[in-house]
Each structure stands twice: as C-alpha cells, then as structure tokens.
C-alpha cells in the first residue's frame, strides 16, 4: 500500500502543482537585415511596406500630416513548476492599440507628409508609443 501512495499523491498534487511549459507565438519578428536597409530621410512608405509587409497599427502623427506605422510580435516561453492557474492566464496579450503588453517588442516608423521615413525606433512597444495616441476622427 505504501508503494502506491506516491502515485496517488501525484494525482492529488496535480490539482495544485504542476510542471508547466507554456509557449505563445504571435506574429513573426521582422527580418533585422531588412530593417537595416531602412534609412530615415531616404526610404519611403513604399520601401517600408515592401520590406516589412503590413503593419499591425497605423496612426496619424501629432501634426496630422504624416503617419506612424507600428510593427510588433510577441513570444513567450515559460517553463517551471507553478501553481495551477487557467491556461490563458499569462497569454491574454492582444494587438489592438492601447493593449500592448509591457514586454512586447517591435518597431515604430514615422513618416512625414511626403511619405518619407523620418524616424525609426525599435524596442518595447509600450515605451516606443508612450507619446502616441490615436486621435478621434474629424470632418475633412
């Protein structure tokens, strides 16, 4: 009987303790070689769209004359012992604007009125987009 106890203990423990390997991949990272070819002042919107594809988010610049393109990707790879929690507890990231997770990397491209690339930033999306807000539509 004592020999069976560890097996039963394992079954009971499975309700609260488990080894978990949780991997979440959302969108593919951009090719760094492609990014390296983008040059502020020289590259334009067409070049960027051809090299990087469609962005996740497009915003109007603060002055209302240009555009901001946001590319992001999310990869989580967690392993370890953990208390039992819902499967999607740490996987609730989404890419609607204002809902980026703090650890989401990405790239932000700024274009002027002539669609020339004026600036390129890489890093964590929340840091890069701190000063950006989607403006409400207005009559044109």
């Amino acid at each position: 009987m004592l020999r069976i106890l560890p097996a039963f203990a394992a079954l009971l423990l499975s309700a609260c303790v488990q080894f978990s390997w949780n991997k979440v991949s959302r969108y593919a990272p951009l090719d760094q070689d492609a990014i390296a070819t983008l040059e502020p002042g020289r590259s334009d919107l067409g070049d960027c769209l051809e090299l990087c594809g469609a962005p996740l988010v497009v915003l109007e610049t603060d002055d209302g004359r240009g555009a901001v393109l946001i590319y992001a990707w999310y990869h989580e790879n967690n392993r370890g012992l953990r208390l039992s929690t819902p499967v999607n507890d740490s996987a609730s990231v989404d890419f609607d604007y204002d809902r980026f997770e703090a650890n989401t990397p990405g790239m932000v491209l700024f274009f002027d009125h002539d669609w020339k690339l004026s600036a390129l930033r890489q890093g964590l999306i929340l840091d890069l987009t701190n000063d950006l807000r989607r403006r409400r539509p207005a009559n044109v």
Binding site: Q18, W21, A54
Partner: peptide, 16 residues
C-alpha cells in the same frame, strides 16, 4: 498528471 504542455501560434493576413 503533473506535466502541462501548451503552445499557441497566432498569425494574421493583413492588408493596409
């Protein structure tokens, strides 16, 4: 039992 493995893969078609 004591081991939980999970994988999620999300991708999109996007056109702007």
């Amino acid at each position: 039992v004591l081991v939980f493995l999970f994988n999620e893969d999300t991708r999109t078609d996007r056109v702007w």
